[in-house]
Amino acid sequence: MGSQSPFELPPAVRELFGADPEFSDDHEGASGGVVNVNGIYWMKKGPEAVAEHERLTWLETQGLPVPKVALFEADVLVLADAGVASLASAEVDSPGAAMAEALRRLHALPIADCPFDARIDTMLRLARRQVEDGLVDAEDFDDDNAGRTPEAVLEQLIAERPEVEDLVVVHGDYTPSNVLEGGMLIDLGRLGVADRYRDIALALRDLDDDFGPGEVAAFLAAYELSEPDQRRVHYYRLLDELF
């Protein structure tokens, strides 16, 4: 990307970056419109950046490790680089166990104190909007949903909506690339109160894909979940297809 920002920068952000900043979108887990700046900052813009700033501010009051907000102006969020790798690439003894330990800390937060709602009715409304606005990339579906339409996935989600939710504070996109070595959580724009399986389902999926069944077993042991509810695992994996 070089020295050209992908969007117009607010004055305070331009001042922070200096006269000749370097922008790059070539980085680990490149997703969510995140841009690396000068090798020391991460920048996002838009509604997702606003949502993440709100959640970072709240999580900091709860004592969990989160990235330092270097600047927030208009709808541009700038985070300081934490200086450590994510569990997708860090050399740790067990990525599965590390993910479980960080998740247990998050899921232990009191839901009464969390102002962000991510319960299933809220997520289905958002999913419908995603589908109606043409924002779902069906080409990016998991292999077991290949060839399906977003409309068909949404119809199944509505028909199979779980009757009970085991509510905790969830991350909402809990993958190895969103947990840094040491347990810091990043990419928090979907955080809110929801069924714990919203996180468990994605953790199991990505650990299996990236590291194999041994790390799935390590995650389950450290999270103290001996027999996962496969119906809810499948449901929340399917829900993630629309986001």
Results as ranks from 00 to 15, higher is better:
L103P: 01
G29R: 10
G2M: 05
R129N: 13
E22R: 15
P67N: 13
D144A: 02
S86G: 15
V34K: 11
H53D: 03
F72W: 05
F141T: 03
E54A: 09
A88R: 14
D81E: 12
D117C: 08
D144V: 08
E132A: 13
L185I: 02
T175F: 08
G147P: 06
G172T: 05
G189K: 01
V168M: 06
E28W: 11
V78F: 02
V233C: 13
S86R: 00
S5R: 08
A98E: 11
D140P: 00
G189I: 01
P150Y: 03
I158N: 07
A221V: 02
A118Y: 11
S24G: 02
E139C: 00
P115H: 15
V193I: 07
G183A: 07
V168R: 04
F7N: 05
G189R: 04
R190L: 03
G172P: 02
A98S: 09
L16E: 09
D187R: 00
L124V: 09
D206M: 10
D25F: 12
L126E: 15
A138V: 00
T122P: 04
A222D: 08
F72H: 05
D140Q: 04
Y197R: 05
V34W: 10
R232N: 01
L16D: 11
Y235P: 00
D187Q: 06
V34F: 10
D117V: 08
R119V: 02
R55T: 05
I200M: 10
L202C: 00
A85H: 06
E91Y: 07
Y235T: 00
A138H: 07
P176G: 01
V34M: 10
E91T: 09
V216N: 07
F7E: 02
F7W: 15
E227S: 12
R161K: 15
F116K: 13
M184F: 03
V66E: 01
E163I: 08
P10R: 01
R161C: 11
T61H: 10
G18D: 11
G214E: 15
A102Y: 00
V169E: 03
L242H: 03
D173M: 02
G96Y: 04
L157G: 01
E101W: 06
P47R: 10
D140W: 15
M99D: 04
N36A: 07
S3C: 03
A98I: 01
V69I: 13
R232D: 05
V50D: 08
H27F: 10
T57Q: 14
V169P: 04
G214T: 08
D195E: 10
T61R: 15
A217Q: 14
R205F: 12
H171M: 10
G33W: 11
G29Q: 13
H234P: 01
L238M: 11
G134K: 10
V136H: 08
M43A: 03
P10N: 07
H53R: 12
